[in-house]
Nucleic acid binder design. Structure first.
Lengths: 339, 339
DNA sequence: CGGATGGATGGCCACGTGGCCATTTGTGCT
DNA sequence: AGCACAAATGGCCACGTGGCCATCCATCCG
């Protein structure tokens, strides 16, 4: 592959002059510049970002670790983030952690060895990688958490107002008269201290309801486990009259289980789910969703990350941004059936 | 960030000995090895892949350029490919081309400057980047096309048997009695010589039908343009009685347009779409789909790519793999309505 | 007891770039 | 013409690694 020396030789100048055609063209005489540019075109020379990164001690690479790109939320996040970062001159390395910290650690090690300048992370569950992340940060890596953050996270983060979102959903259902509301999520405060699960029982209390132990189960954030759980919930002697799904994928599983049980939404059971996924507008009636401002969150994370990466000096206070969710009522919730 | 010299100093050995603890541990005395390993742990040393790549003249990075990760097909492709490549020790740089060759060129230039060892590409439409790709290949970059390939492509590629897939769909609909079948796709043989669009009219001829000029329109591969087109088709004096959507996203748009026109599937109009997306099993009746073996295609592309990257010697014949599609009949097609 | 053998360790350099300093060439002014 | 000064160009080195060659030393055998 052509190097700057090849360009220099072809243009009949020194390597130093040749490289100036790229970085400081204003320093060159007009015809020298033209000659070098011509040589660059002829050779198809493109500077070696690897060598540049080594020399500068700093790559133009950012790592993005999400839960699972198959989920539309993360697909959208990935797309917006990588598009913006490309425009800012960065390459984006993507990895899924499948919500598991062991896989996440592998991804972090990869980003470490690649000397990524920054990392945008949706951390998983399990033994925390906090220590590893802190070492990376001490080495100068910019870190932003998104969609989830460590308890008392020392990093910058961008979050949905999960508590507010859950309250919106619960209030909406309670106002329709529901008293048996189940949430599909991961009820595991030890291992998965998630805002949404934790907020749910508080939100119930706000509207004067008690959580029911038999609705509680620790599941992963997948469609299939949500399907299983919903099926089981509906088979209970006192099944929920309303289901609040805490992620979009789980919502699809819940809907499928409801339909396969021969039940109709919202006559037999009401359904509200996080994430405004396209299927929610294709089924009938359309599904009530709690929409996240995904692009806004993505843009905020980039803004913070670019700022951290530009800043060479002392660390500033971590930046924290919280975005409100929006409940879109479409027809999948109604009054509970009469017993 | 710690370097191998720091490790060496801490372990009281030379840098050469220290690095052998990583690459050739069998050469070291047992206690030396232990000492160096201890120093590596203490310092959290991870080899600098940037320096390694420069020295070796070869990165462990692969670029993946797809149409749009928001589409489930590409999300799935990305996920399977990146997972496998991570296991093989490669990092994956992802970029969307939005089916546009101008954006694709930017992505290629980025991968060029990053000196990616290989590229898996779903090329877009517009002025071809064939020349650029050939220069990259001449410089040693492994290239595999997937889901689409240049006419007479000099590269290895992995494709769906698009012609066979379209024939399956058309035959299925024709057998039910449909004579007015429309395909939603990009009828632009000059700029977008796509197998599926091109095959459609041949498939019609196979079953003794003529294409109808008024069903033809060049659209992009998006849900919204498919929605618009479907709406217009249904408003024709002689609307199609069956619609074959050539991509999954377009299928969702078509379904939405059909429902919003107050029509019922399959009573008023039959619908078959490429891609077994999750919404097709959530609506009622479930949608007939032409399923692509996405994971198989992803794995094949990786196999070819790894082979190309390992091979240092002279170029072998390009590898070509074609995968069959599978028609899943579920209930969204039936006999045409009586006029 | 001396030399051969091989196990263990160390020194050195280049990969392509970017930053810094040095040198050459050109221009204007007295 | 001579000088000052700026414009234009060039030389050199280090970034961290991996490959190659060199050196050191203990052991074994004749």
């Amino acid at each position: 592959m052509a190097t700057i020396k090849d360009v220099a030789r072809r243009a009949g100048v020194s390597p130093t002059t040749a490289k100036r055609a790229i970085r400081e063209p204003e320093l060159l005489a007009k015809d020298t510049l033209a000659r070098v540019r011509h040589a660059i075109d002829e050779l198809g020379y493109v500077p070696d970002a690897v060598a540049g990164a080594l020399r500068r001690g700093r790559t133009q690479t950012v790592g993005l670790i999400v839960g699972n790109v198959l989920e539309a939320f993360f697909a959208r996040l990935s797309r917006t983030i990588s598009k913006q970062l490309h425009q800012a001159g960065y390459s984006v390395l993507i990895a899924d952690n499948e919500y598991r910290t062991d896989l996440e650690l592998q991804a972090l090690q990869m980003l470490h060895s690649q000397r990524a300048a920054g990392i945008i992370l949706r951390s998983g569950y399990g033994a925390s990688n906090l220590g590893y992340l802190q070492r990376l940060r001490a080495n100068g890596t910019a870190i932003v958490e998104i969609d989830y953050h460590y308890p008392n996270s020392p990093f910058s983060w961008v979050m949905l107002d999960n508590a507010g979102a859950v309250v919106q959903g619960v209030k909406h259902l309670a106002a329709l008269g529901h008293r048996r509301i189940a949430a599909l999520g991961a009820y595991d405060p030890e291992r998965n201290p998630e805002d949404r699960s934790l907020s749910f029982e508080r939100a119930l209390a706000d509207v004067g309801l008690r959580p029911r132990a038999e609705y509680r189960r620790v599941i992963t954030l997948t469609e299939s486990e949500a399907y299983d759980l919903t099926r089981d919930l509906l088979a209970l002697p006192e099944p929920p009259t309303a289901i609040l799904s805490l992620t979009g994928n789980q919502g699809a599983g819940a809907y499928r289980a409801i339909r396969e049980a021969g039940l109709t939404v919202p006559r037999d059971v009401s359904l509200v789910t996080f994430d405004n996924y396209s299927w929610t507008q294709l089924v009938e009636p359309q599904i009530d969703v709690i929409e996240q401002p995904v692009d806004d969150m993505a843009l905020a994370s980039i803004e913070i990350l670019l700022d951290l990466m530009d800043r060479s000096g002392p660390a500033a206070e971590p930046a924290r941004r919280v975005f409100p969710a929006r409940l879109l009522v479409r027809g999948s919730s109604g009054p509970p059936p009469l017993d």
